[in-house]
Design a protein around this nucleic acid. Structure first.
Length: 314
DNA sequence: ACTGCGTCCTGGGGGC
DNA sequence: TGCCCCCAGGACGCAG
């Protein structure tokens, strides 16, 4: 399941293999994988062919590749956006290779490596590709990591910045605003962590890991947490995602691989997620799994104390 | 404005 | 052995 560290690992691979490349041909093998594209596959291909990839940008779990026309290279008003969903893969290939779930294939020229194809493979079709317009960021800051221009895809404008964004660095006003935005909600803390409009990039795996590190129960009402507890939780989320990034991401179920098809190695470092019945690395209490909002939550029943009840007087 | 829940999708695995 | 049902979850649409 690609979350921030996995998407960032893919971005890194794409930088090495497709930056500056010109798109020669675009093949769509599954129409449903190309959305939100009003004109469908034909419009998708039409807006890609002949254009050059000028950057590889990420905000949270969203990736986009700004495009410029060969005739007017300074103009970058559109981008190829990619969301990997549950099982999406962007694979750089030197040759046209077979994939069971190949949904789209871009043929490239002038790549910085031997790469000739950018394949979008997606088993569950929760991910998508589209060519979309870029709009200015409200704050005039870069829209995401990897591109200095203050723009982002209109279709992702509602997505918050993530914890690796310099604008949200620990101790900055940006980070304080995230803490405040979280604390204003009246939801369980895990719900807030997973809300991509408050802070982006965190999915089920890293939410559980951050909560384990911070010693918080997933169902703890946000209103019962102190400012410091929320700050510490965000720091834990940032740290665990940085460590996962250094390991190339988490390949929990083999649906995640990087841009050259290799898995990540952070799964062996997970403390809670996917470890039902295994000993908590801190206190050896068996990790428990409980259903939470149609998902699974993994936690240590000893380290992550039972949620306090929100005071009715507040 | 918020919150919560259902929906999309496919392959693997467990149970009978 | 085979079949059916359930499970995984990111993002979004909708109802209240």
């Amino acid at each position: 399941m690609p979350e921030l560290p996995e998407v960032e690992t893919v971005r890194d691979g794409l930088m090495k293999h497709v930056l500056g490349a010109r798109i020669v041909e675009a093949q769509v093998l599954c129409d449903r994988s190309v959305r939100p594209q009003p004109g469908g596959a034909a419009e998708f291909a039409d807006r890609l062919v002949g254009h050059t990839i000028t950057a590889v940008v990420r905000r949270g779990k969203f990736l986009w590749l700004p495009l410029s026309a060969v005739a007017s290279p300074a103009e970058t008003s559109a981008a190829l956006i990619a969301h990997l969903g549950m099982s999406g893969q962007l694979l750089v290939r030197d040759e046209a290779t077979e994939h069971r779930h190949l949904r789209a294939r871009l043929q490239l020229a002038d790549t910085p490596s031997e790469a000739k194809y950018l394949d979008f493979v997606d088993q569950r079709i929760f991910g998508y590709l589209a060519v979309v317009d870029l709009v200015p960021t409200p704050d005039g800051l870069p829209g995401g990591l990897g591109f200095a221009a203050p723009t982002l895809p209109a279709v992702a404008a509602h997505i918050a910045r993530d914890l690796l964004d310099p604008a949200l660095a620990a101790g900055t006003p940006g980070r304080r605003r995230v803490v405040d935005a979280i604390r204003r909600r009246r939801v369980a803390i895990k719900t807030a962590l997973l809300n991509q409009e408050l802070v982006s990039g965190i999915g089920n795996i890293y939410a559980d890991e951050a909560l384990w590190r911070a010693g918080l129960h997933y169902a703890q009402p946000v209103g019962t947490l102190t400012e410091t507890q929320v700050e510490n939780l965000l720091a834990a989320a940032e740290n665990v995602m940085c460590e996962a990034l250094a390991a190339g991401g988490t390949s929990f179920d083999a649906l995640y691989v990087n841009a050259t098809g290799e898995p990540g190695y952070f799964e062996r470092s997970l403390a809670a997620y996917g470890r039902e019945g295994a000993p908590c690395p801190r206190c050896a209490t068996p990790i428990r799994r409980e259903p939470f909002q149609n998902r699974s939550s993994f936690f240590c029943p000893k380290c992550q104390n039972t949620p306090a009840v929100e005071s009715p007087l507040r």
